[in-house]
Amino acid sequence: MAPVTLDEAVAQVQARTGGRVLSAETLEEEGQRVHRIRVLLQDQRVRDIRVDAATGQWQ
């Protein structure tokens, strides 16, 4: 799988959850780059979603 930019990960999370992105950042976790996206879901819950920057897979 191809690497995923932070902007691509944000767009993917927004499209799949239908929520509003509150914040997004790229972190280094256990030697791997991970995009952490905080999203406000339609039921008013806040969820942190981690997207592997190398594969685009949600964690």
Rank of each mutant, 00 (worst) to 15 (best):
R20S: 15
E29I: 15
E8M: 10
D7M: 07
M1I: 11
A24K: 02
I37G: 01
G31P: 00
Q12R: 13
E30K: 15
P3A: 08
A53E: 02
G31K: 10
Q42I: 00
V46W: 00
Q14L: 09
D48N: 14
W58K: 06
L40Y: 04
V10G: 03
R38T: 14
E25N: 09
V4I: 15
E8I: 04
A9Y: 04
R16K: 15
L22V: 13
D43K: 03
Q14K: 15
G18L: 08
A11T: 13
D52N: 14
E29G: 00
R38K: 11
L6F: 06
S23L: 05
A11M: 10
R45D: 09
A53D: 05
V21Y: 03
I37S: 02
M1N: 13
T26Q: 12
T5E: 10
A2G: 12
A24Y: 02
Q12E: 08
Q44V: 07
D43R: 01
D52G: 01
V13T: 05
R16L: 11
A24N: 02
E30C: 06
L27Q: 14
T17H: 05
A24W: 05
I37M: 03
T26M: 11
Q32T: 14
L22E: 15
Q14C: 06
H35N: 10
V51K: 01
Q32K: 15
G56C: 02
T26G: 09
I49D: 02
